[in-house]
Design a protein around this nucleic acid. Structure first.
Lengths: 233, 233
DNA sequence: GTACGTTTAAAACAGACGTTTGAGACGCTG
DNA sequence: CAGCGTCTCAAACGTCTGTTTTAAACGTAC
């Protein structure tokens, strides 16, 4: 997942994929989400994509490289949208047309996540699930790439939340960022622990419904007063 | 994962494992967490356990059955402790010696999770991570078993939270249960999305520290006032 | 028309996988 | 000591894996 080159107007140039490569990407994305990286064979991918087996190694060097391509195709546009949101918030706060509070920072994540979840053309909710697989499966290569090329994304959110919650220690801000993003991330990914027991009463697949419930929850959590005796007071 | 038989005094009888079977269970637990089910080969497990390859199929019928045994060995004692906690809370609330509020219900989950995380003899934090892999990998067999044998565990928590938050609609209670347990579960499992970017400032591996920060966060979220216009008001 | 780079096709590669086999070792009971 | 169930061991089974190879088809430029 190397950083894509930029065209003259600064918008990223998406690598051009051939018809065959695109069919592979789409079948692979669906199967990686449903079965995981290891359990998905190239033969199953090419069969569902209706292409030849060797096409994978021709268009994408290897299975691992295919996985990275699948991930990068969805992740990079989304991450850039998050950065744009943060930039817009800072600009409007400087201009005095917006409050720089926890809700505003949170919405810089919620809006891109919601837009992504509702847009099948960009992978929709499927990619968010793939992302959560990456998280728990802890792919080494992808972790290195995310850390190297996109670590500043987290840094930006961290600084923004610190500015939105003045008076809190850096440690306390880090924890609220951690917990807040955990809920939101897993809520959008549909990782419902209660559903595993077949007893979840929420239909956690509707993105708008997720936002409606997760936003007040996280806002309340982020604004929580630290417990008495907390070292992070 | 069939329900274990009960001895005369009602305490569950843990299946007796031979020395070899135990070595397999322990090596498998560690490797399943680190590599996942598919990526962990029986040859690697038996090699690290210092036993013969065929011992796995002798002691545990198949690889899938081994995985279920690994999971059940840790899960069942923990789930029973959760049920005991809920029972104790109900008893003390009836006796008037305890308040039946959201915090009390939440602690019925936090205490067992904390105790488990700090006890290496019961799998410690390792098992919680394994559990979270089960969640996103969505193993069919395990899901069926959890739903059939342990669905009532979730029902109990759900009823308890509904009782602790009177005046809220069932849908609203379900969402707060879902979101609250999501944070707690993934916090204990150490599924830190920020860490994936190498920029997490929290050392989310210390169970006591997790509790200290996650409890106020979740309590605030669960007590959050629903947004205006919410259908779940 | 012919040469060329690009893409597809079928087949084969070596290796790893989960599982099974059959023989032998061990510890008990009579 | 003999008999027997429990367990271990090395070897092999057939299947599936990611990858490579070889040949053929395609569109385009000379």
């Amino acid at each position: 997942m190397k950083s894509p080159s930029l065209s003259d107007d600064g918008t990223p140039v998406e690598p051009k994929y051939s018809e065959t490569a695109l069919r592979i990407l789409e079948a692979a994305e669906r199967l990686f989400v449903e079965l995981g990286l290891e359990a998905t064979s190239l033969r199953l991918i090419t069969q569902q994509a209706g292409v030849n087996l060797a096409a994978v190694n021709y268009h994408f060097r290897s299975k691992a490289a295919l996985f990275e391509a699948v991930f990068a195709r969805r992740f990079e546009p989304w991450a850039r949208e998050c950065l744009r949101e943060l930039g817009r918030l800072e600009a409007r706060a400087s201009a005095g047309t917006a409050r720089f509070d926890a809700e505003a920072v949170m919405m810089c994540y919620v809006r891109p996540a919601l837009a992504l979840s509702k847009d099948p053309a960009r992978g929709g909710a499927l990619f968010v699930r793939l992302f959560s697989r990456v998280l728990v499966e802890n792919h080494r290569v992808l972790r290195e790439t995310l850390s190297r090329d996109w670590g500043h994304l987290v840094t930006r959110y961290s600084e923004a939340l610190g500015r939105a919650l003045p008076g809190l220690s850096a440690e306390e801000v880090a924890w609220r960022l951690h917990l807040g993003f955990s809920v939101m991330f897993h809520a959008f990914a549909g990782n419902d622990i209660l559903k595993l027991f077949g007893r979840s009463a929420v239909s956690a697949r509707d993105p708008d419904l997720i936002v409606k419930h997760v936003v007040p929850f996280v806002l309340a959590g982020m604004g929580a007063v630290p417990r008495a005796g907390s070292s992070a007071q």
